[in-house]
């Protein structure tokens, strides 16, 4: 039964032969992967295996690093993410990103969420903007906690709240895809479980790619898991298969804690 459902899921992003270089050093080696629509795909692997680098390929965040070069194609629908003709500004409006450390801007809570709609000119009026902010905060599960203090400084929120604010900020632009780079690594267990629940809810609307160091987290939130080692994609499959019946020895060694 499960396989039938999985088969029914459309492919959202198709990466083919992605190679990434930092100067002379090759960080990713011929990575090809199909990402399913409206699902959570987890990238796991030891530090320095290239999983974050790969995640940053999807919204061209590697452009920011001067020495970094990306080769290969990443197709999202009919958009070639990596093509020089693709405008990273428009691309990033379709692919939101949440970072390792919560990074709210030193503005008010409202202004943080309104930032994306403002720079992309999404709201025609103040009421529309208000609605967008409220809607995004609700989707990020933060509305109830901040509804009465939208004018407070965002930096005054707790770490977990700040991270959910960053999720709301990303959602407000109206993306299809959310990239999450170890979103819980700076948070305590309670805040982490709140975010994990949120990820499961968001999955119904967004395609989510998440890099995580915690294998339990990957097992809890994701449907698909990709294991990276030294810049290569070692194993990719349904999460429950990867964790219970890994096909590759390296994957097994990693998830059983022998390497890491």
């Amino acid at each position: 039964m499960d396989t039938v459902v999985d088969m029914a899921k459309a492919i959202k992003i198709q990466a083919k032969d992605v190679n990434v270089f930092y100067g002379e050093k090759q960080a990713l080696n011929n990575v090809s992967i199909d990402i399913e629509d409206r699902s959570v795909t987890a990238f796991i692997g030891p530090s320095g295996c290239g999983k974050s680098t790969f995640l940053r390929c999807f919204n061209r965040m590697n452009d920011v690093i001067p020495s970094c070069r990306v080769k290969g194609s990443i197709m999202m629908g009919d958009v070639d993410v990596n093509s020089p003709q693709t405008d990273p500004v428009l691309l990033r409006a379709r692919i939101g990103m949440v970072f390792q450390k919560p990074n709210p801007f030193p503005k008010t809570i409202f202004e943080n969420v309104a930032y994306g709609p403002r720079i992309h000119g999404l709201a025609q009026s103040k009421t529309e903007l208000d609605d967008m902010v409220e809607d995004s905060l609700k989707k990020a599960g933060l509305w109830g906690e901040v509804a009465d203090r939208l004018a407070d400084q965002a930096t005054g929120l707790s770490g977990g709240q700040q991270q959910r604010l960053c999720i709301a900020r990303a959602i407000a632009v109206g993306p299809d895809v959310l990239l999450m780079d170890e979103p819980c690594s700076a948070l305590d267990p309670i805040a982490t479980s709140v975010i994990e629940e949120l990820i499961s809810e968001l999955q119904q609307r967004f395609t989510i790619l998440i890099v995580t160091h915690s294998m339990q987290q990957a097992a809890r939130v994701s449907q698909k898991t990709a294991y990276f080692h030294l810049g290569t994609l070692v194993e990719y499959g349904d999460t429950k298969d990867v964790f219970t019946l890994p096909k590759n020895e390296q994957t097994e060694a990693y998830i059983s804690g022998k390497i890491g």
Partner: peptide, 9 residues
């Protein structure tokens, strides 16, 4: 902070 801003497009 810059990454956050770039990430939002």
């Amino acid at each position: 902070l810059r990454d956050g801003a770039y990430g939002l497009g």
